[in-house]
Nucleic acid binder design. Structure first.
Length: 522
RNA sequence: GCCGCGUUCGUCUAGUCGGCCUAGGACGUAAGAUUUUCAUUCUUAAAAUCGCGGGUUCGAAUCCCGCACGCGGUACCA
């Protein structure tokens, strides 16, 4: 039997990073097992449809290198892959359940149910609304209350049919058996058992003619021959309903295996990582930048912040899973080989921005000089400067190790392309001591007289001049750096001088002498 | 309220049949080394009495029970 898994998001907005991780785990499992990965869009709630969301999901997963074998965007033998396109299909399954006594029609108005729940909620302060076998419960549409409600069980099938014929809106609810233990075998958590008495008769088919998630999910997973359902922990409480549905349809033999992933938590305090946390705490919760079509609100994305997809994938893979060794840096191929559902942790994981940055730095270092150079050239061009490619390559090679995000490139490397226009006052105060103009003039003299080669200048300046005159190495060299760079940061000073060239270096030093001038201290 | 899941350094976690755990790694933090500066890099250190309390056992982070806390669910949302 070939493994078939699906990632089944709802197009209600941008894909949350937790959803991305779910997709990733599904993908890794499918690849490793030589199985198929399917993208199914669960858009049964038409009121929550958000334009652009489906395209966003596809683009985001594509950016991360999570590929599908079948799905809305590429088709496949089990299509269609969008539930709204499968609408005509679900009704017959709901009716099958009705015919077999596993479901019933219900006519209760949403407002009436809402009122019941409100009432129950108010009474909850007093302790409870109902006591069933010693259990206190708030209002729930279940085996204890359904006979008091308006449905084909309390009204009788004839009356129900009459109402339907008369055009009364109705839903179809699942009829849970009264008192049975339902066990869900979860690949991560083991057996989880719940009693049907405490489970509510979920709506399977809505009055608008669409199925709910619960029905559509089971029907589609069965029809699409899904073998493993890997999804978020928030689905665990409804998993018993799902196994009952397989049983009711007579599909228990081929029921997929379940694995409920732990949640992704916010970095500080407790709770599920939410859309708001991201921009508040300085990291994206979405893979790609998202422009909300309604509010116009923009949420930042990993891609736009300069994160490399490999870094995001690696970080996400390790947030809730562990290879069992000390290895932390893994490519998609390695992850595929090592991935193992039994090594997924049970507890929720807090997102760590520091760790994310570390992964990003590691993967940035793996970029070729060519790739970094081309990023750099773009930024240089944006500042109106035409950079020589060979030169940009040299800069990239030299400066790469101190960069984490591409956006830092210009700020860290700008002095390779343009002379400083101002000098850091703190650096002047610290480094530019009395007599420095004389030393700088000497630097110019050396550059003018000694062959323009690293070793020659090193000897003439560092050894003969500075050491020979017992000058302070740090002071002189840092002043030179200040003159050439504008501040006291950067790579090896003479390497920089060699790259800038003799004339440019002299110009910069001369300008510093003219601008900063002689100071009187010590 | 009820049901379910979870609980090892600040964070992610290793620990899968109980002894090799005086609890390991990584991020972060601190100190040191290297360097003409900054960053990188390297070394070292601090950091979890394994949520708490009982039990079982020669021996428990690992098994059992209770409690606490956290999270999830409790919609004609997924």
């Amino acid at each position: 039997m070939t493994v078939r898994v699906r990632f089944a998001p709802s197009p209600t907005g941008p894909l949350h990073i937790g959803g991305v991780r779910t997709a990733l785990y599904n993908y890794l499992f499918a690849r490793q097992q030589g199985g198929k990965m399917i993208l199914r869009i669960e858009d049964t709630d038409q009121t929550r449809f958000v334009p652009g969301a489906e395209q966003y999901i596809i683009e985001a997963l594509d950016w991360l290198g999570i590929q599908f074998d079948e799905g809305v965007h590429i088709g496949g033998p089990f299509g269609p892959y969008r539930q709204s396109d499968r609408k005509p299909l679900y009704r017959q399954y709901a009716e099958q359940l009705l015919a077999d006594g596993w479901a019933y029609y219900a006519f209760d108005k949403p407002e009436a149910l809402e009122a019941k729940r409100k009432e129950a909620e108010t009474n909850m302060h007093l302790g409870y609304t109902l006591v069933i076998d010693g259990h206190k419960t708030p209002f729930q549409y279940d085996c204890n209350t359904r006979m008091q409600m308006e449905n084909s069980l309390s009204l009788g099938m004839e009356e129900a049919q009459r109402r339907i014929a008369a055009g009364d809106p109705y839903v179809i609810r699942f009829k849970f058996p009264e008192d049975i233990d339902i066990t869900v075998h979860d690949l991560i958590r083991g057996d989880v058992t719940m009693n049907s008495r405490l489970l509510d008769d979920k709506v399977l088919f809505k009055s608008d003619g669409m199925p709910t998630y619960h029905l559509a999910n089971i029907v589609d997973d069965h029809l699409m021959e899904i073998t493993h359902v890997i999804r978020g922990e928030e689905w665990l409480p409804s998993a018993p309903l799902h196994v009952m549905l397989y049983r009711a349809f007579g599909w228990e033999e081929t029921m997929p295996q379940f694995a409920h992933l732990p949640l992704l938590l916010k970095p500080e305090g407790n709770g599920k990582l939410s859309k708001r946390d991201g921009d508040r705490l300085g990291f994206p919760v979405f893979p790609l930048e998202w422009h909300d079509p309604k509010s116009g609100e923009v949420s930042s994305g990993y891609r736009e912040q300069g994160y490399l997809p490999q870094a995001v994938v690696n970080m996400l893979a390790l947030l809730g899973w562990h290879p069992g060794t000390d290895q932390e840096l893994m490519t998609m191929d390695e992850l595929t080989k090592l991935f193992d559902i039994s090594h997924i942790s049970k507890n929720g994981a807090k997102f760590s921005l520091d760790k994310a940055k570390w992964f990003q730095h590691e993967y940035f270092q793996q970029l070729s000089d060519e790739e970094v150079a081309s990023m750099l050239e773009q930024q240089v061009a944006a500042h109106g400067i035409q950079a020589d490619h060979g030169y940009a390559m040299q800069v990239a090679a030299l400066m790469k190790e101190r960069i984490t995000f591409p956006s830092e490139l210009w700020d860290t490397c700008c002095y390779f392309f343009q002379a400083p226009t101002e000098y850091d006052p703190a650096a002047i105060k610290k480094r530019w001591k009395a007599g420095m103009t004389t030393h700088m003039a000497k630097v110019i003299e050396i550059l003018n007289t000694v062959p323009f080669e690293y070793d020659a200048i090193h000897k003439a300046l560092l050894e003969d001049y500075i050491k020979g005159h017992e000058l302070n190495m740090g002071s002189v060299m840092n002043s030179l750096r200040l003159a050439v760079v504008g501040k006291t940061v950067g790579p090896d000073m003479l390497t920089l001088v060699m790259m800038l060239g003799k004339d440019e270096t002299i110009r910069r030093v001369q300008r510093a002498i003219d601008t900063i001038g002689e100071v009187e201290n010590q």
